[in-house]
Amino acid sequence: MEYTDVVMENFTCPKHVGEIEGANGIGQVGSPACGDIMKIFLKINDDGVIEDASFKTFGCGAAVASSSMATDMIIGKTIEEAGKFKNSDVVDALGGLPAEKIHCSVLAAEAIQAAIEDYQKKKA
């Protein structure tokens, strides 16, 4: 199994690690494949724009890299745009993932959707 340089970069120096204070959308999902867990924190402003995003991940290198890349990609997006965010977007940005590691990127996409849903639920 071989990770791309982008994956390794995002694993060794991940962006947006930790919890953001005042996060108003939090989503946590577990992978049914390997049992890993990812938690995403979003800070969404009144215009529905994601001002900040961060993550905490209990998982493999691909899962950490996916979390780092995914949070980086959705910052600045509206929740509508982020709602369309797919795991393939992360995989492409990472320069690909080994076949057995695709589910790790799914985890990132699902955690983001869960965080957006959490925000909408709280708002409603």
Partner: peptide, 20 residues
């Protein structure tokens, strides 16, 4: 560990692994 969403206060949700 600093990167992990689970810790002593927030233990692992065994349901995830059951599912797995």
């Amino acid at each position: 560990r600093k990167m992990s969403p689970i810790n002593a206060e927030c233990p692992i949700d065994d349901a995830v692994f059951e599912k797995a």
